[in-house]
Computed example of a mutant assay.
Amino acid sequence: MTTTTSRPRTPSLLGADPLRTALRLDAVVSGANGLAYLAAAPLLADLLGVPAGALRGLGGFLLVFAAGVALVAAGRPVRAGAVEVVVGGNLLWTAGSVAAVVAGRFDLTTAGTVWVLLQAAVVAGFAALQLATLRTR
Rank of each mutant, 00 (worst) to 15 (best):
G15Q: 03
L43I: 05
V28S: 02
T133F: 07
N90Q: 15
A27M: 02
A124G: 07
W115S: 14
L58N: 10
L48S: 10
R105P: 08
L58T: 11
R76N: 15
T3D: 06
P77W: 11
A45N: 10
G81D: 15
G57E: 14
L43M: 09
A128T: 09
S97G: 15
G88F: 02
L92N: 07
A36R: 05
T21M: 04
T3H: 07
A45M: 04
P8D: 03
A16V: 09
A121V: 10
T4Q: 02
L63C: 15
L71M: 14
G31D: 04
V78L: 07
V64F: 13
A52V: 08
L13E: 03
A41H: 00
A99S: 14
A111Y: 12
L108K: 05
L48Q: 05
V29D: 02
R24I: 06
L25V: 08
V85E: 11
D26K: 00
T4D: 03
A74P: 10
L71Q: 15
D107H: 12
V64G: 13
L19I: 00
V102Q: 06
L131Y: 00
T4M: 05
T109F: 14
G15H: 01
P51L: 09
V50S: 08
A52D: 15
G31P: 06
L63H: 10
V85T: 13
L47F: 14
R20F: 00
D46H: 11
G75P: 15
G112C: 09
G75T: 13
V78M: 12
V29H: 03
V102E: 11
V28Q: 02
V64Y: 09
Q130W: 00
A99D: 09
V69Q: 14
L58R: 09
V87Q: 01
R79A: 14
D46K: 10
A52S: 15
Q130H: 04
V72Y: 12
L63P: 08
A67G: 15
G75L: 11
L118I: 06
V123L: 03
T136W: 01
A66P: 13
L55C: 10
R135M: 04
G112Q: 06
R20C: 00
A27S: 10
V69G: 13
M1A: 08
N90K: 11
Y37H: 07
G125S: 06
L19H: 00
A82T: 13
F65V: 10
Y37P: 04
L48F: 14
T4L: 06
A80H: 11
F106E: 10
L38E: 10
R24D: 02
V72S: 13
L13A: 07
A67T: 15
S97V: 11
D107C: 04
Y37L: 08
G34V: 02
T4F: 05
A127F: 01
S12E: 02
P11H: 05
P51W: 09
W115A: 14
T94H: 09
L62I: 09
T10D: 07
A120G: 08
A124W: 00
E84L: 15
S30Q: 03
T10L: 06
A128V: 15
A100K: 04
A22F: 01
G34C: 01
D26N: 01
L13P: 00
V87S: 06
M1N: 01
V101W: 04
A100G: 07
L23M: 01
Y37S: 07
L134A: 08
T94R: 09
L43Q: 11
V86R: 04
G75W: 11
A103W: 05
R20P: 00
V123T: 08
G81V: 12
N90C: 14
